[in-house]
């Protein structure tokens, strides 16, 4: 169980690092959206999964899962909104 936890958490951290690298290295806002959703969905998700066995009681575990769910919903919508906004801006420029 412990090794599984460590593996999950390290993998989650890896996705956070990848997301940040993508944010820094990609040279176009659309690709950056792609990069940060990796951190939002996979990074935090794996971190939460790794944390679950350490939760003291069921209520805490549910709260952890709820956090992940909320971030998923929020980040997906925010990505849509900002891509939509970018597209509108570019069409306005032409």
């Amino acid at each position: 169980m412990m090794y599984l936890q460590i593996a999950l958490i390290c993998l989650g951290c890896f996705f956070f690092i990848v997301g940040t690298l993508g944010l820094l290295r990609f040279n176009d806002a659309y690709s950056r959206i792609h990069a940060i959703t990796k951190a939002d969905n996979l990074g935090l998700g794996l971190l939460v999964l790794g944390l679950l066995p350490s939760a003291v009681n069921a209520f805490q575990g549910i709260k952890l899962l709820l956090i992940w769910l909320l971030v998923l919903v929020a980040s997906a919508t925010a990505s849509y909104l900002i891509a939509h906004y970018l597209k509108q801006q570019q069409e306005g420029d032409v």
Partner: peptide, 21 residues
């Protein structure tokens, strides 16, 4: 652009949640 900055702020929010956990 302003959009890139907001994207970084978005990532900050998620990373902040991770750090807090």
């Amino acid at each position: 652009t302003a959009t890139d900055r907001m994207l970084a702020a978005q990532l900050f929010g998620t990373t902040g949640v991770g750090i807090l956990l």
